[in-house]
């Protein structure tokens, strides 16, 4: 018990003393995950919209496929991309393995199924009259799409926050694709794994506290957003 209290106190000391290494790891984490989610949102929204509003052969199969991808382990994504990006792989000549770009690619693929599945549910539950009204008021397809997106923005924000929460805390893909290189690809989850294996609990707890705080912020945001979309705001 003493070791936990001592390590926790050390962790907060590290955080608030402005330890550059710790804050650098936090910055890398946010940079990589934010870029990954920003890149994933546009295609995910378009795919989710087409799956919800479209009527074509294989639609149900694709929906089932993305639902299956929801439970895909991060290490499997990491492994697949590792093979693709390694020297013998089809994209090996690009030299992307053990870079932040590779981590972004991994997190992009991880966030995509969550975004698509949750956004699809939101689009599916949306009132079709929103699309028809926008079209009948003179909006072109793109403008009508953005109108529907705005109408269901609370559900979509929940999808984005859930996806962001998943990718910023995943360790498998980041470890395999980034290689946990100090000052470059070491992010919060990989650093926690490393520091814990070294018996350096204070740094692990400090970074864990950041993740916990982030989880709290994301959940608070989620409830705030969902509250705004409620029937009785």
């Amino acid at each position: 018990m003493d070791i936990l209290i001592a390590s926790t106190l050390d962790a907060f000391r590290l955080l608030f003393s402005g330890d550059t290494e710790i804050w650098e790891i936090i910055a890398i984490s946010f940079r990589v995950s934010s870029l990954a989610i920003l890149l994933a949102i546009p295609p995910a929204l378009i795919i989710a919209f087409v799956l919800a509003y479209g009527n074509f052969f294989g639609r149900r199969f694709i929906i089932s496929l993305f639902s299956t991808f929801l439970s895909i382990p991060a290490v499997v994504i990491g492994l697949t991309l590792f093979i693709v990006l390694s020297r013998q792989g089809p994209m090996g000549n690009m030299g992307l393995l053990f870079t932040q770009t590779a981590m972004i690619m991994g997190q992009f693929l991880l966030s995509l199924p969550i975004l698509i599945a949750m956004a699809h549910t939101s689009f599916q539950a949306s009132d079709r009259r929103a699309w028809e009204t926008a079209r009948t008021l003179g909006a072109n397809r793109l403008y009508a799409f953005f109108t529907v997106v705005y109408e269901i923005r609370f559900g979509l924000m929940a999808a984005m926050l859930a996806a962001y929460g998943r990718i910023i805390s995943e360790v498998g893909a980041s470890m395999m694709l980034g290689g946990n290189i100090a000052h470059y690809t070491r992010n919060i989850p990989t650093a926690i794994a490393l520091e814990t294996s070294k018996g350096n609990f204070a740094e692990g707890i400090a970074l864990g506290a950041v993740l916990l705080f982030l989880a709290f912020i994301l959940n608070a945001l989620l409830h705030h957003v969902q509250g705004k979309g409620s029937i009785n705001p």
Partner: peptide
């Protein structure tokens, strides 16, 4: 048709 005709639903949809 979309440009020239306008359809009003039985219960009009109000945008947010």
């Amino acid at each position: 048709l979309s440009q020239s005709l306008m359809y009003l639903h039985q219960q009009p949809y109000m945008l947010a």
